[in-house]
Every structure is written in C-alpha cells, then in structure tokens.
Lab assay of single mutants.
Amino acid sequence: HHHHHGSGALAALHAEGPLAGLPVTRSDARVLIFNEWEERKKSDPWLRLDMSDKAIFRRYPHLR
C-alpha cells in the first residue's frame, strides 16, 4: 500500500538477483529511509530522521 507524499519521489530498486528489492543508489536509499520514517513517525512522533551516509551503510551495506 504505497501512498505518495508531496515530493512523489520513487526509489529505484534492484529488480533481480541477490540485491532484489534493495535501493540502487544512496539517494534511492534516502527515499526509502524517509518514507519509512514518515510511516513510523505516526506511532512514534519523536523518531529522528537519520539519512546520513553512516545510517545508509548500516542499513544497506551493499551501497558502501
């Protein structure tokens, strides 16, 4: 159930192989992290948004 927010940013994801479903670039990863943060913020208003490279690598090590 993907609803768009204002920016309408869509992340490019790997379609197949071992990385299927994972973001292709760091900016794609940022979109995913932001979208998930927006969702989680509803139940956790104090949740901090962390889109640093460090956060991205921790989450998606293949982007190193």
Rank of each mutant, 00 (worst) to 15 (best):
A20P: 02
F34Q: 05
K42I: 08
S52C: 04
D28I: 02
W37R: 01
K42E: 10
R30P: 00
K41S: 13
S52V: 02
T25I: 01
L19D: 04
A9H: 13
D50T: 03
P18K: 04
H1D: 12
P23T: 01
I33A: 03
L47Q: 06
S43C: 11
L47F: 11
R59Q: 06
D28E: 04
V24S: 03
V31G: 04
F34C: 05
P45G: 08
H2F: 15
W46R: 12
P23E: 00
G21L: 05
G17V: 02
G17S: 03
R26M: 15
N35S: 13
E36N: 04
F34W: 13
R30E: 05
V31S: 08
A11N: 04
H1S: 13
A11S: 06
P61F: 03
R59H: 06
W37F: 06
H14A: 02
R26Y: 08
P61C: 02
H14T: 03
R26P: 12
K42M: 08
L10N: 13
S7N: 13
D50Y: 03
L49E: 01
W46C: 08
R59N: 06
H14F: 10
T25F: 05
T25N: 08
L19A: 05
D50E: 08
R59Y: 07
A12C: 09
L32M: 05
L32N: 02
L13D: 03
V24I: 08
D50V: 05
R30S: 03
I33E: 01
K42D: 11
G17A: 02
G21Q: 05
R64I: 15
L10W: 06
P45A: 08
T25G: 15
V24E: 04
W46M: 14
P45L: 06
G17Y: 03
R59M: 05
S43V: 14
D28V: 05
G17W: 04
R59A: 11
L19N: 10
E36F: 07
H2Y: 12
L47N: 04
W37A: 02
L10Q: 11
R58E: 15
P61H: 02
E16D: 11
L13G: 02
L63R: 00
L19E: 04
R64H: 07
S27C: 10
F57H: 05
G17N: 05
T25V: 02
H62E: 01
N35Y: 07
P18S: 09
R40I: 07
R64T: 11
S43M: 14
V31T: 08
P61T: 01
K41C: 07
A55F: 10
R40T: 05
P18D: 08
A12G: 10
G8T: 13
P23C: 01
K41V: 13
H3C: 10
L63S: 00
A12D: 09
R64K: 13
F57K: 04
L63W: 00
P61G: 03
L47A: 13
K41T: 09
N35C: 09
A20M: 09
R40G: 14
L49I: 06
V24P: 01
S43Q: 14
R64F: 13
M51D: 07
W46Y: 14
P45I: 09
L32H: 02
W46E: 11
L63K: 00
D53H: 06
L10S: 15
E38G: 05
D44Q: 12
R26G: 04
L63C: 02
H4M: 14
R48A: 09
L13S: 05
V24Y: 04
D53T: 08
L32I: 14
I56F: 01
F57V: 08
G6H: 11
N35A: 14
L22C: 07
I56R: 00
R64W: 12
A9I: 14
A15C: 08
R58G: 10
S7I: 13
R58M: 10
R58Q: 15
L49P: 05
R30F: 06
G8M: 10
L32T: 05
H2A: 06
W37D: 00
A11M: 07
G6C: 12
I33C: 02
A11I: 11
D44K: 12
D53G: 05
H5A: 10
K54H: 09
L32P: 00
D53I: 11
A15T: 11
G21D: 05
A29M: 00
N35H: 08
G21H: 05
R30I: 13
I56K: 00
R30Y: 15
R64Q: 09
I56P: 00
D50W: 04
L32S: 03
S43Y: 15
